[in-house]
Design a protein around this nucleic acid. Structure first.
Lengths: 237, 237
DNA sequence: CGTATACTTGAATTGAGTCAATAAGTGTGG
DNA sequence: CCACACTTATTGACTCAATTCAAGTATACG
């Protein structure tokens, strides 16, 4: 089931997202109190963190890897509501159940918080609750952009928006070109953009033919003309 | 510009949403401190509360009436991200600007909070911040349902979902039938569901022909067969 | 290597959009 | 009260972007 679950003296010392995560606001003393309720857990690709509708026993902070959040209709239609990155905090809900399913896309390392303990911890650490509110606001902002994407953008604009928003690093040789790695399948991308995998493929091919992106491998995209891509993403061409 | 803006001794005494709103958590004494920074404002239909991209000077709590939140692309394509009801709290953002435009659909009465004062107030009243976080979580839940709607549902399923979610009251004479009033235009509904007004019309007509709803007036819908509507909304027929 | 899975491309189909016309309200001023 | 202008809602005919269905191709893995 779980690949690993462990408690160590100070698991946060080596944490790569210590500065961005919900726990960033905490003093060393309070961090120790948080560590007392947290469990570090690992997941392999496609393993499930939690299921839509299931009682919301835990919240999670992503340390390493990418996960996907998704919802399904009874006939199997799926929507990937978001891809989740290191530093993101998931599993918070206003009901007693999870709003969506969370699965590992890549190998994953997370901090797992029991909801009950977390509520109590919030009461004593308003700074952390403030940070969670800030992250929820940011999620809402992103969700609204995604609503515009799904409701009004064309396939071409959706893929351009997706590529623009995905984390990228500068291409070593190039001037203003960027590289991105896409660890998920075309079906995952399609389900995130409200399209079919076929349409995602065709749209990639079209962008490559126009010289806007390059695709040395299916899972690696080079943004050759980022400004052009940005215009497309915003529906300005 | 503004239809009215006033400060009175205890504007909250007669507030219809006192129990549901963000201020519900406050003791009488703390409520007085909040009243010191709040201004009650009225808007006429189609008046603007704030514009997408504008500096986020104020947050608002809706006391009476319905508002719409929307985003636009440069070529005029619009998406209504949400309709806002009494008790809802809007204008909270993680940036320095509003994520979307807010406009009155019906005549509106709101409480207006300067952001700066609100931040300070939160610091002294963690209970209220907790309540805002709970409301943000609820908004996120709704946004995720709307993502599924826009990404994967058919026109028929979208309209059924919309009618199911809109506040309704029981039909006096009927057994299990419900009445809803739709104060917004077909274009507003279409922009909320990622459709055109023509498709919204045609889909209404189809639901009427099938006896699932009745439409004595364009702005009044009777849900004659709510169970059937629910099934359609969830893609189960 | 053979099998499975993911990706890509082509051809035919279709649900919703576009364009166009008509109907039904709503408000105004003579 | 009626004629007119204006906005919103509805319906019809045609179009098209994206889906569906159907091969093929590439890649990974035991």
């Amino acid at each position: 089931m779980l690949t690993g679950a462990a408690r160590v003296a100070n698991p946060c010392a080596a944490c790569a997202v210590r500065e961005q995560a919900v726990c960033a606001a905490l003093s060393p003393g309070r961090l120790q109190r948080l560590i007392a309720i947290v469990t570090r857990v690992s997941f392999e690709p496609d393993q499930i963190l939690f299921l839509e509708g299931e009682p919301d026993e835990y919240a999670f902070n992503i340390s390493e890897g990418i996960a996907r959040l998704s919802k399904m209709l009874s006939d199997g239609r799926r929507l990937v509501t978001a891809f989740v990155h290191p530093g993101d905090f998931i599993g918070l809900t206003p009901r007693h159940a999870y709003a969506c399913t969370a699965e590992a896309v890549t190998a994953l390392r997370v901090c797992r918080f029991p909801k009950a303990g977390l509520q109590a911890f919030f009461r004593d650490n308003p700074g952390m609750e403030r940070r969670v509110l800030a992250m929820a606001s940011a999620e809402l902002w992103d969700a609204q952009s995604q609503l515009m994407l799904l409701g009004r953008k064309t396939a071409r604009e959706r893929l351009a928006s997706f590529l623009r928003n995905w984390p990228s690093r500068p291409l070593p040789s190039g001037k203003s070109a960027w590289v991105i790695d896409l660890p998920m399948t075309r079906t995952d991308i399609a389900d995130h953009l409200g399209l079919t995998p076929e349409t995602v493929c065709r749209t990639f091919t079209a962008l490559v033919k126009e010289g806007i992106v390059e695709m040395p491998l299916a899972e690696r995209i080079i943004l050759s003309r980022p400004n052009r891509l940005e215009k497309i993403a915003e529906g300005e061409s």
